[in-house]
């Protein structure tokens, strides 16, 4: 498909990119905008690694054409921190709990947890594992992520 100009709003900033409109959002974010949060994991929307928030909803970007999100606000991992660089409570909780081994899944975990907590501000363990179930982690760091999400919920509550 020929290239087109596409308007994107990412992490509060407006961008114009010239790409094939069928390009998955993932590659535009990573290669055109230099945003390393969303990761390539499977290309099949099976693992969650490439998720971003599209209008507040956690969505896989590996098959999502960039043209489909032209008018919607997109937030990546980098956009969760405050302008002063302060971490979002979920990011801070992952650091505090040292909830990572290789950390490749951390993007999908945090993005999904932020969406989960906006719908369910005070989740119990079952609600967390249910909400996180589409995100894969291979190192077995799940238990730490659950603790981190719980403590982020408590921090937001407080």
């Amino acid at each position: 498909m020929p290239q087109q100009q596409i308007q994107l709003t990412v992490n509060g900033d407006d961008h114009t990119v010239t790409v094939d409109p069928s390009t998955p959002l993932l590659y535009v974010l990573r290669n055109e905008l230099g945003l390393n949060g969303p990761k390539y994991g499977c290309g099949l929307q099976q693992c969650g690694s490439c998720r971003v928030l599209v209008d507040g909803e956690a969505r896989a970007t590996c098959q999502l054409p960039v043209s489909a999100v032209e008018d919607q606000p997109i937030t990546t991992l980098a956009g969760l921190s405050g302008e002063d660089g302060g971490l979002h409570p979920v990011q801070a909780a992952v650091v505090d709990e040292q909830a990572a081994q290789c950390g490749y899944c951390v993007n999908g975990v945090i993005i999904t947890a932020v969406a989960l907590l906006s719908d369910t501000p005070d989740p119990d363990r079952a609600e967390i594992t249910d909400g996180m179930n589409e995100v894969l982690c291979r190192c077995g760091t799940h238990a730490r992520f659950v603790r981190a999400i719980q403590s982020a919920a408590d921090a937001v509550d407080a």
Binding site: L35, N36, T76, S81, L87, V94, G103, V106, N107
Partner: peptide, 13 residues
């Protein structure tokens, strides 16, 4: 130290 870089989506990998 690398976990903060991971949660910020910095260049890690």
């Amino acid at each position: 130290k690398d976990i903060e870089r991971m949660v910020r989506g910095d260049e890690v990998y």
